[in-house]
Amino acid sequence: MELVFATNNLNKLKEVQSMLPPHIKLLSLSDISCTEDIPETQATIEGNAVQKAEYLKAHYGYDCFADDTGLEVNALNGAPGVYSARYAGPQRNAEDNTNKLLNALDDKSDRKAQFKTVVALHLNGALHTFTGICKGEISKEKQGAGGFGYDPVFKAEGYEKTFAEISLEEKNSIGHRGKAVRQLIDFLLALPQ
């Protein structure tokens, strides 16, 4: 089975590929010569994931899946949420986003947050969605050199280390994207071969 993963984020691609069984071949956007920005104009994380999958299916014809992820912080009324990637502006810079988040939480005692990922699968003419949530909190400062995005400031419940301080395998086992992708994989494995 071949599926296109609608992302240009090589970190996400690597994370997801490491979880897929060998009989599922993952194609990137560059593999199908998709160079345009895929629209993400919806008001929700789920809406963006669905929009990206439907765009790819309509314009390229491939069975595909897309994801959207947001960091939802209690003390910020769920922000940055759907705007997580461009929280500090259209340049989509992870360092700027993280710094803005830490500044916004500077005087807040409630640092509870959750990462939410929705994966939208367009397969055989039908659309399916899978949601993964990882609850945790925002650290007071950046810790660790691994991961990407907000990983240096997010600690999952029950963990003293941030996502940037743990291995990719550990992050996949407890993280939001890992949970959503495992649901996707379980769904794909249950299909008749």
Score class of each variant (00 low, 15 high):
3 L>Y: 06
4 V>E: 06
5 F>A: 02
8 N>R: 15
8 N>M: 07
9 N>G: 14
12 K>T: 08
13 L>M: 09
13 L>R: 08
16 V>H: 04
19 M>I: 09
20 L>F: 13
20 L>N: 06
20 L>V: 09
21 P>V: 04
22 P>H: 01
23 H>L: 03
26 L>P: 07
26 L>V: 09
28 S>E: 11
30 S>Q: 15
31 D>A: 15
38 I>P: 07
39 P>M: 09
40 E>S: 12
45 I>G: 03
45 I>P: 08
48 N>I: 08
53 A>F: 02
54 E>R: 15
56 L>Y: 05
57 K>T: 13
58 A>E: 15
58 A>T: 13
59 H>N: 15
59 H>D: 05
60 Y>C: 10
63 D>L: 09
65 F>Y: 10
65 F>N: 03
68 D>H: 06
70 G>C: 11
70 G>N: 02
71 L>I: 14
72 E>H: 03
74 N>C: 10
76 L>D: 11
79 A>Y: 08
79 A>T: 00
80 P>T: 08
81 G>Q: 10
85 A>F: 03
91 Q>E: 14
92 R>I: 09
93 N>R: 10
93 N>H: 01
95 E>M: 11
96 D>I: 04
97 N>W: 01
102 L>W: 05
106 D>S: 15
112 K>C: 12
115 F>G: 01
116 K>G: 05
117 T>S: 12
118 V>G: 03
119 V>D: 05
121 L>A: 08
121 L>G: 04
123 L>C: 13
124 N>I: 00
125 G>R: 09
127 L>P: 08
128 H>P: 01
131 T>F: 04
132 G>K: 01
135 K>D: 07
136 G>Q: 03
137 E>V: 04
139 S>H: 02
141 E>N: 11
141 E>S: 15
142 K>R: 15
144 G>D: 12
145 A>P: 00
145 A>Y: 00
145 A>Q: 12
146 G>H: 13
146 G>W: 07
148 F>A: 11
151 D>A: 10
152 P>T: 11
154 F>I: 07
157 E>Y: 00
160 E>H: 03
162 T>I: 03
162 T>K: 04
162 T>Y: 02
163 F>V: 04
165 E>T: 10
166 I>V: 14
171 K>M: 10
173 S>C: 07
177 R>I: 00
178 G>V: 05
179 K>Y: 02
183 Q>T: 07
184 L>H: 01
186 D>M: 03
188 L>R: 02
188 L>N: 09
190 A>R: 08
